[in-house]
Amino acid sequence: MAPVFEQGSEVNLIAALLIGIAFGWILESAGFSSSKKLAGVFYGYDFVVIKVFFTAAVTAAAGLLILNQLGLLYFEDVWMPTTYIVPTIIGGVIMGVGFVTGGFCPGTSVCAAAIGKIDAWAFMGGILLGIFFYSFTYESIWEPIRNSTKLGKVKIGDLIGLSEGMAVFAFLLFALFSFWLVDTIKKKYNIKDVEY
């Protein structure tokens, strides 16, 4: 069944635009258009990032598994990343430095730029500069790292020995624990909202 639309077809690009509009609307409505709110996750005054991010991932993981069990979607037919351990960790570390210095990630910078945040336009310009630099130095610096330590299309359940359903359930418990933890931290240390 899934995917309903053919890859590369015009109708699929229209679907992409509509799905993007929904994505952008939700990000903006939840406050992801503000670097102040996003950076709050690192300083304990605003945990909206963790709450939205994990709720969305758990909802989608559970929903996709249900679609799979109903025979409406097979994971072989849709996007599934191949895991490369070392480049993913190094790339994540570089992005982590980018997050705490820039206050956005690429998707949220687009949504903040949409409502007129000039710092978000600067961040988007930075993304382009970074990719230009990466592309011009690809063969000399990045290529060997990027293709190293390939693990294949591995799911977390297979890695830790849980069935797909149990893995999603464990993810749900982890998400609920993290929501409880962040609210407890904010309350216990009486962390005030930052206003500016």
């Binding site: 570089i94 992005m95 820039g102 930075g126 630099f133």
Partner: peptide, 8 residues
């Protein structure tokens, strides 16, 4: 931050 995100 944007440049680091671009590379990472």
């Amino acid at each position: 931050g944007g440049a680091l995100f671009g590379m990472g």
